[in-house]
Amino acid sequence: MSADKRLYLGVPVERPKAAFFDFTSCEGCQLQMLNNEATLLDFLSLLDIVNFREAMSERSDDYEIAFVEGSISRADEVERLKKIRAQAKILVAVGSCACFGGVNQLKNRFGDLDWVKREVYGSNPVDSTEVRPVSAFVTVDLKIYGCPVKKEEVEVIVTNLVLGKSIVHPSYPVCMECKANHNICLFDLGEPCLGPITRAGCDSWCPSNRMGCWGCRGPAEVANVEQLREIMLKHGFSEEEMIDRLECFGGFSTYLSELK
């Protein structure tokens, strides 16, 4: 690539070499990357993908953008992650697992990791640590939220990344999108919802399907948990139901420790 190409965070804008890596995850976010068949080929043409274990046999360690899926839950994962960080100019955390620990961090709530291991593997020793997000170990340049990530949003973000445009996440909550979609509020239908405090960007994916939001994208810029608690109580939902949702994906962990 010629040196006079426009640079963004040090990366040439034309078809940057990109690699996908997975850690502790369901691999659903990677699948989402391949899941929009209508635009898949256009999307793939944006990037020169040099490493994507789930999809290809070739592997190369020469890449500029690293997309990282999954949370970190074993010592060898930390080492692998640090190597990726050392190579990549831009490291993108993809999905709730990478951004917050995701559902995997639910096991942390027991405190007693030995019990967790015994519950599943009996007396056999298994190597596993507390579940942490990627940012607990390395600098993350960009986060793509969601469990799963929304492909349309990924496409916009990646296009902007490649073109050197800035990337701004919505600061407002899911409720804004939900209202724009003319949904009946789920609270009025007798369902709990974290829409009032969760960062938008998913186009109110769950409420539009009459499933209350579980907060997979983490807190909006302003997240008034106290107010949410009042709404929950007013509609007859217990503290337990609210906490189930707040702790599901790890995005609200700081708020939870305040609550408890």
Binding site: T24, G28, Q30, S73, N104, K107, E119, E240, D244
Partner: peptide, 27 residues
């Protein structure tokens, strides 16, 4: 890397299970 879903569910109300368990596998 194991994720311990069976342990994660312990203590949770029934309605959490399908939502959490979907995340066992993306496929």
């Amino acid at each position: 890397t194991p994720r311990f879903f069976e342990a994660m569910l312990v203590g949770k109300k029934w309605n959490n299970a399908p939502w959490i368990c979907a995340r066992i596998c993306g496929i």
